[in-house]
Design a protein around this nucleic acid. Sequence first.
DNA 1: AGCACGCCGACT
DNA 2: GTCGGCGTGCTC
Length: 617
Amino acid sequence: MTGYAKIRFPSALPQLDKEFDYAIPDGLEVQFGQLVRVPFGRDKSLKTGIVVGTSAQSEFADKVLTIQAIESVKALITNEQLDLAIAVARRQAGSVGELLSQILPKRYKKAESAYKESATKPIASTPASKVVRELDVLERVFAEFDFTTTNGLYDWALQFALLGAEQLRLGNSSLVVLPDFRSVELFELALTELALLEKSIRNESSDTGSEKYTNYLRSLDEVAIVYGVRSTSFMPAKNLGLILLLDDADESHIEQSAPYWNSRDVLLQRQELAKAKMLVSSLSPSTEMLRLLDLGYFKRVSLQNAKPLVRITANHTRLDDETFGYISNCLKSGKPVLIQTATLGQFAGVACKNCRELRKCHDCGGRIWVNSFKNFACRSCKFTGQLGPCQCGATEITSIKLGSSGLAEWLGKAFPGANVVHSSGDEKITSVPAGATLVIATIGAEPEVEGGYACVLIADAYSMVAGSRLRSLEQSSLRWANAASKASSQGIVVFVGLTGEIAEQMKNLDFFAMIHADYLDRVELGLPPAVRLVSITSQSSADLQALETALNQTPIASLLRKIPGSNSQIAYTYPYSDGVDVAETLVTLSASVSSKSKFRKPGQRLFRISMDDASVL
DNA sequence: AGCACGCCGACT
DNA sequence: GTCGGCGTGCTC
């Protein structure tokens, strides 16, 4: 026996979320990050654990068992990854074990035996990124790059790749975290252009298991540009020098399983732990980023040159003649037009015949429409029945087709000569040929076209900002900005149905000012992200009540402000400074209530705790 | 997760 | 008297 090993289990069970001591048998050498087989539980059956340390003594010397075998000679988890998992678990009221099980790659024996460390190749010389000077002096930067593309390369992709190359020259890795598969592809175009693909490692959920595993192994050994979707936030990175994050407001950066972390929060922790630099880029910032800028934790660096021209129309039911004529001319002269719509489905509404104002539900303020039984019905709640008079006093109504499909469908019919292409979430078209194509795309499914679109029409601007959710402006803004970036350098962006201050801000595509105003409003109202918002959800309302009662007896009760909830969910806002206390208390209380619950089902957890729930409010 | 320990009702 | 119900708690 040559001392003890500290073992953690990659398991979501909160009871197992600590280090266990095991004796290291003679002749066996263990290393941090290796997987080992250890006897565990009453039946001493073998379980896989991760070595997270060694020691000469153990306070459990009377009950220690012995490591039976080494399962993976190669260390699969780094010290940095464990520290990050601990930090994230603490912040998110989660367990280290569940994060380790998310981080640990699925192993493929064939891929592992085929894998060998590749010799380091020199990298091609590249010009310096236009943000490199700022990054020399600043630790954390929020950068706005150009809207337009050059030779099909998005400015963000080019700058990210140039910064990655710069890090490689310094002997450092960089981590590039992107919102979706589309942006991964776009980033790869830039890597290819700069001959950096060989020095890069991709992490993409659609890759095969063995591809993912091989790439993971490479990221343990090579100094490289490690890039991919949100789980890349936890990937190994040798000599991490720089963290790059794109579009942090995008909802796909939120992990949908416990402990519901998001790329931005994880990377902020990682930046501090690794003492790396960090750059967040987006054409439209998140309100969280505005908070960090207002605190001075991040510095804004705007590197935008020309922006596309903008046209705003106030009417949301039809297009004015000038815009119509413009689209018509684009198509006639063989140039592509993009129409962004919220949904391809029918989207009818009811307006007052007198004042043209949209009729809203008395109960919830949702949109009123005429359903298939020819009754008035609310789109948000269950209301159906009679409609009272409008605010203006008139009772006569007229039914209209709102933005989206109504307008898009009508446009398709209005230009019979054009080649009309539909792209939506299911049948996503990634690119269309240049020419007289009228593309009608749902949000996030906008195809690329060589040279960019002559006209990008945001058809649902009106209904997108009319949403009642806290995040609707922020989400819409990001979608608009990303659609606008698909316009050619001589192109025009048209917003249909925008009025007031937002219309003013969009005249020069000032997404930053628009979101900043939104953030300041939230500070005033004490809403996220000025504060954090925790939600606790459970199928068992009795246990949820028990948790609430217990919570009210703890010292953190005074820090929490209750948000109206339901039988199955309670929610509170709380200050950032008390996050760790709130998380710790919730972990303890939820464990004790769960253990006494009559409701608890095998395998299923009783409480779902989300420390930053963006869907409430 | 498993699995044993343990403290209450129906049985030879 | 004891067989077994599953609620409670531990696993280095």
